[in-house]
C-alpha cells in the first residue's frame, strides 16, 4: 500500500463495514456489492481485496459476527498504537491538573471516553493512571461488539470501568469530562460541532479529544508504524488512512468553538520542538468551561 495514494476523501474500511442506524446502536445489514461499488467510486485500489475476503450471507450482506470478530482483532492491534504513542500516560498527564481544577467542590468526577472502541485508554487509566476514587470512568461506543469486548477485558483484569453502547450524537451519559482518541477523523468536519454539542448538552465542563495531527509526515509515518506492527490488512489500511484523514487543526478548533458554546478552546501538543517542522503524531483539542 502506497501511503501517498491514500486520500482524505476515502472512508476507512471499518466505516464501510459497519452501518449503524443514526441515533441508535442498531446495526444495518451492509451489502458487499454496495461497499465494493463505493470503494471503486472513491478510487481506492486497496480496499476491495480486503473487503472481498470478509464472509457474506446468502443475501450478499456481510456476516455480522465475522465483521465483529475482524474489528475486535483490529482493535486489539490498534492498542499497540495507543501503547507506543503513550496515549495512556498522555491522557493521565492532561487529566490530573484538569481534575484538580474541576474538583474544587470535592465531588467525584465522571470521565466519559466517547468512541472508546475496546476501551484501552480507560482501562489503562484504571490500571495505571493512579486517579483513585476521585474519578468514575465510563466508555461509550456505538459498536456493541467492541463494547462487549471492552467489558470482557475490564472484567478479566478486574478494572473498575463501565462500558455502554451509545451513539456519540445522542449521548445520554452526563459527565464532567469527555475525551476521545482517534475518533474525530471518523466524523466529517461539518458534523463535528454536533458531536461536541452532544457532550455540551450532557453537561460537559471539559473536553479532551485526541486525534492524529495533519502533517506531511503523517502518511509515511503511519505507513512505517502500521507495516511494522499490524497483522490484519484492514488494520494496516485503516491505520494509514486515519493519518491521511486527520482534519486540519484550524477546522477542528472552529468546530470546537461552534459546538462547545463559549468554552475556552485550545490545541495541546502541536510540534515536538518549536524549531523543528515536525508535528506530534497526535494532538488534542481541549475545551474547558471557565
Amino acid at each position: 500500500m502506497n501511503p501517498w495514494r491514500f486520500r482524505y476523501a476515502w472512508l476507512e474500511l471499518s466505516d464501510h463495514l459497519i452501518h449503524i442506524a443514526p441515533g441508535s446502536t442498531e446495526r444495518i445489514p451492509v451489502s458487499r456489492d454496495a461497499v465494493l461499488a463505493a470503494l471503486e467510486a472513491e478510487g481506492n485500489p486497496y480496499g476491495a481485496a480486503i473487503v472481498g475476503s470478509v464472509p457474506v450471507e446468502d443475501d450478499g450482506c456481510f456476516v455480522p459476527e465475522a465483521v465483529d470478530a475482524l474489528l475486535v482483532r483490529c482493535h486489539r492491534e490498534l492498542q499497540r498504537l495507543a501503547l507506543e504513542l503513550q496515549q495512556g500516560p498522555r491522557t493521565r498527564d492532561r487529566l490530573i491538573p484538569l481534575i484538580a481544577r474541576l474538583r474544587r467542590d470535592g465531588r467525584r468526577i465522571r470521565i466519559v471516553d466517547v468512541g472508546c472502541g475496546i476501551g484501552y485508554v480507560l482501562r489503562w487509566l484504571a490500571a495505571r493512571g493512579g486517579l483513585g476514587d476521585a474519578v468514575e470512568l465510563v466508555g461509550c461506543d456505538f459498536n456493541a461488539a467492541l463494547i462487549a469486548e471492552a467489558r470482557r477485558l475490564a472484567q478479566a483484569e478486574r478494572l473498575d470501568v463501565t462500558f455502554l453502547a451509545q451513539d456519540a450524537f445522542t449521548l445520554d451519559v452526563p459527565a464532567d469530562i469527555y475525551l476521545s482518541s482517534g475518533v474525530l477523523h471518523h466524523i466529517p468536519l461539518d458534523a463535528l460541532p454536533a458531536f461536541f454539542a452532544a457532550q455540551e448538552r450532557a453537561g460537559a465542563r471539559a473536553w479532551l479529544h485526541a486525534d492524529f495531527q495533519a502533517s506531511p509526515l503523517a502518511a509515511p509515518g503511519s505507513w512505517v508504524f502500521h507495516r511494522a506492527r499490524m497483522r490484519e490488512p484492514l488494520a494496516v489500511h485503516d491505520g494509514i488512512l486515519s493519518a491521511v484523514r486527520a482534519h486540519p487543526t484550524d477546522g477542528l478548533l472552529a468546530a470546537a468553538r461552534a459546538g462547545a458554546n463559549g468554552a475556552r478552546v485550545e490545541q495541546l501538543g502541536g510540534p515536538v520542538f518549536s524549531w523543528l517542522p515536525m508535528a506530534r503524531a497526535m494532538h488534542t483539542i481541549a475545551m474547558e468551561r471557565e
Partner: peptide, 18 residues
C-alpha cells in the same frame, strides 16, 4: 518523558522492525 518514549517508537523501534 512521553514525547521521548514516543520518538523511540517512531524513529527507532518501528523503522528498525521494518
Amino acid at each position: 518523558n512521553v514525547d521521548v518514549r514516543t520518538l523511540t517508537s517512531v524513529l527507532i523501534f518501528g523503522p528498525l522492525t521494518l
